[in-house]
Design a protein around this nucleic acid. Sequence first.
RNA 1: CGGGGUGUAGCUCAGUUUGGUAGAGCGCGGGCUUUGGGAGCCUGAGGCCGGAGGUUCGAGUCCUCUCGCCCCGACCA
Length: 495
Amino acid sequence: MPKPARDEKAITPRSEDYSRWYTDLVLRAKLADYSPVPGCMVIRPNGYAIWERLRDALDGMFRDTGHENAYFPLFIPVEFLAKEAEHVEGFAMECGVVTHSGLEPDGEGGLRPKGELDSPLILRPTSETIIWHMYGQWIESYRDLPILINQWANVVRWEMRTRLFLRTREFLWQEGHTAHATADEAVAETLTILDVYRRFAEEWMAIPVLTGKKTEAEKFAGAVDTYCIEALTQDGRAIQAGTSHYLGQNFAKAFDVTFQNESNQREHVYATSWGVSTRLIGALIMCHSDDQGLVCPPKLAPTEVVVVPIGRKDEDRAIVLPVVERLREQLAGLRVKVDADPKQSPGFKFAEYELRGVPLRVEVGPRDVAAGQVTVARRDTGEKTALPLDDNLGTAVRGLLDDIQQALYDRALAFREQSTHRVDSYDEFKQILGDEGGAGLLLAHWDGTTETEKRVQEETGATIRCIPDGGEVEEGSCMVTGKPSRQRVVFARAY
RNA sequence: CGGGGUGUAGCUCAGUUUGGUAGAGCGCGGGCUUUGGGAGCCUGAGGCCGGAGGUUCGAGUCCUCUCGCCCCGACCA
């Protein structure tokens, strides 16, 4: 059944099907595309540009906190994975494994793997094992510590159910791996990074996040403690946006990495690891965007301002284009794109740059020039205002970008607050959660056992997202078992 | 791997009931007219109808086999 032309050009509205809206947006905004290999994605220039901004900002923050970059290989000997018991259990099932090298004709016009490797290699699902193998060779004394290394890399996890940016079989991320002489120092490192992640989410992505500790069931395979930043999407689901792990001496013991301390005693090294991935782009989309497409915070937007000159007749262009040039000078230093392509209509361009999430659009037409102004449209609110074409224009535009950055954060925070519920009984919990879909964050008492946590997950689909930091001590009783609890934890359905 | 669905143009799909020249919308190329919210008209290009076998004078359509993909269940940044 043919729909009206207008509908065919729009993406699926959120109210109709949130998950289709998300996929439509990613594809139509040309952020990413499906790959011929199921579960993998191609990150297209529009999406990769966001990743680059995000990466560069984080990279600066890592450097500011004393870290340096390095690169470890994609291939890991399979026996490395076996060395840390919990780690194996967590990752064995989702490892891609390389068993052959070379190809030969299969006799049917195709190719088949040729030489079987003596020992299979795994594609890193994360790099703790190979890194700790190397650290074992690099660390002898406390004088070699700490080691504060980060790497930007791809990793492979053979997931069964995938979604663009949120869960793919190969994804890009950064993984920090640090080695310390004391537990205190390693824990401090874990928390330093957690704070970097929190600040990054809030200040760059304009996403308010909860920070906290994961439960035993949710923590990283091989960690002593996993800390996380957890965000809330518009459809009321929690999304883990970053994790920072205190690994204790688990990997040092597995790889026998020891150092001599100042009193000449041998001790196992203390470790941390921490990471954020291209999933952040998924979180960004789900937190801010609307039915018109991507809404990108100015600080992360590859293009902050798009200038659309209006009018194709030569006399119109003669009036408009000089003004555009003047604008370009006033906006120097900002990421500005001027789209003067005469083959596309202004209306098309408006819709297109809204789809792509450009925070601010400046329209310059003959009517504006005649009135000594330009028309400025905010992506976050859709609001159009006229700005006088004078020497303050550059300042005004910069001010608007700052406003948008702040407004996005404020809006997301208000939404989170309004979507957070304190619940005291399991009945109330189930009622608020409903049968399916996101239902916000539920703060409830929990008895601290994995059994109860699993039961809640099986019965409601909600998981404990974190035991929040700075949570007030409040004597209570577990909503399920009635056993004592001293703090509320955060439950939600999650991505 | 268990349950359900679906394969026809780049995309979304009609056509299959009742076998008879391969279709529409969007997108794409060219031309003219257009330009303040996804422009209009004209004109083109584009298909091994998932694959193999069969029935038939004739198969997108009927029969058999096969393959791919999608959705739902166990895992997950």
